[in-house]
Amino acid sequence: MIRDSMFREAIVLGAIATLAIASWSLQPETAMPITPATISQTTPAHGGKAAARTIELEPATGAVAAQTNRSIDRSRQLELPDGTFVEALNDAVDAAPIAQYWGTGAWSPIVAVERSSAGIDWYRHENGSFSTTQMVWRADLGRHLAMTRVAHVGPEPAPAAAATATRR
């Protein structure tokens, strides 16, 4: 029984190795093309112009941006990918640097602060992305903790599937 099992395993492993070698050697250069990233992270914001209650900001060198003195208390600031800081929004404390959640697209500078109808302040970025920080209740930790949130503009949604839910 054990010998049968070992024999079977040896055959399978050998087959994998053979397949891998054969596939590598047979693989044409055009095989398995990977579509380049074209997610529209550089397209304009939804709807273009900012809504009401918008505070236009200077570029990263401006008033709210870079102070690089390491002795400054950064707990109420948000670190940007270039190492500069802006004020954290919505009274967030110890928010994670935005680079952790920015994703694969190129960094886009902050150009404004907008308050949503839900009362949340967001940074608007030059490319139409938004980002924010906010304190949320973490029942698992028993305290409030800051979140760092990034929203990039995505492609046109696929059609809505109104009548296709499947209860089983």
Partner: peptide, 21 residues
């Protein structure tokens, strides 16, 4: 996020708990 657009659209959300979280 806020938007003035009346159209449908997509937000790609990356929502972080942070290193401490």
């Amino acid at each position: 996020p806020p938007s003035p657009s009346q159209q449908r659209g997509t937000w790609i959300m990356n929502e972080g708990f942070g290193l401490q979280g």
